[in-house]
């Protein structure tokens, strides 16, 4: 499914998250929906780097592909599946329902919100990873996003933090050096597991069934300051549907104005969204 996503982003200090969640819950009239997603980023196995010659098609662009799956059990809403690293638990992760996402660089223009074409497709049959490999893609890196989601009319607001694998299990030489210089206290810093929502307990205790298949992967925050990211977005079916785009933009700008004081929403730099492989780099 291809659609156009209009979005604005912002950030929030950890100290303000509680009051913000309560405020959004009150304003939207809904309890926050939990989000805990695992994202795998894939890159082409054999990047195509043709010699550029005049007169030939030289705009060859290869995009990274992201695969997403939710670790929130849809039945009980708040029970988590254990986060499992791709390399360590490939077989277990195979069994999850994955969604494939390709994102275009947002449009350039004077619009005050980010407008980006996104192609999204669920992988319904067969092994998702084999499928990716057959398409000529290989695993690049992974991350987890964890937080809450609210719906305001057409607008979806996500407040989340990005987590990555914690490296304590397999320290590299760099980590070793770091630990040495900080005289062992580095381990404690590294072990900053984000169990703020007490999901750590749930994983060890309640999801024993799932953990038979997958080892619990300790995660750490990407942004060590504990800051939260905010993304407010809405989707329009087609880029060419100008009227809907204008309405959507207006709705997003109105929301931005309404949220002023609670958090600031801005338009991100469009180049940040560029997932293309850069040739010869």
């Amino acid at each position: 499914m291809m659609y156009q996503q209009l979005s604005l982003v912002g950030s929030l200090k950890d100290a303000e998250i509680k009051i913000t969640l309560h405020t959004l819950a009150a304003l939207s009239g809904m309890k926050p929906t939990r989000i805990f997603n695992h994202h795998l980023v894939w890159i082409p196995t054999y990047p195509f780097n043709p010699v550029l010659a005049a007169g030939e098609v030289n705009q060859i662009e290869q995009y990274r592909i992201t695969c997403d799956t939710s670790l929130v059990d849809p039945a009980s809403e708040d029970e988590y599946l254990p986060p499992a690293g791709f390399k360590e638990n490939k077989d277990f992760l195979q069994t999850m329902p994955w969604k494939m996402i390709i994102s275009e660089v947002p449009e350039a223009g004077k619009r005050q919100v980010t407008s980006q074409s996104i192609l999204e497709s669920a992988i319904v049959e067969g092994s998702p990873f084999e499928f990716m490999e057959k398409m000529g893609y290989k695993f690049s890196h992974e991350y987890w996003s964890k937080g809450s989601e609210f719906v305001f009319g057409n607008i979806v607001v996500r407040i989340f933090r990005i987590c990555v694998k914690d490296q304590i299990t397999a320290p590299t030489t760099e980590d070793q050096n770091l630990a040495d210089t900080t005289e062992g206290s580095g381990t404690a810093d590294n072990a900053m597991v984000i169990d703020d929502d007490s999901f750590g307990d749930k994983i060890t205790a309640e999801t024993a069934l799932a953990s038979q298949k997958a080892a619990y992967q300790p995660l750490k925050l990407l942004d060590k300051s504990g800051q939260w990211s905010i993304k407010a977005f809405l989707s329009v079916k087609q880029l060419t549907d100008l009227e809907s785009i204008i309405t959507g933009t207006a709705q997003l700008e109105k929301f931005q104005a309404e949220m002023a004081g609670l958090f600031e929403l801005k338009m991100a730099d469009r180049n940040s969204y560029d997932t293309r492989l850069r040739a010869n780099r």
């Binding site: 100290a15 998250i17 929502d197």
Partner: peptide, 10 residues
């Protein structure tokens, strides 16, 4: 909101 602990900030 199931938020018991605040995570360390640094």
């Amino acid at each position: 909101l199931n938020r018991n602990k605040t995570s360390p900030t640094a």
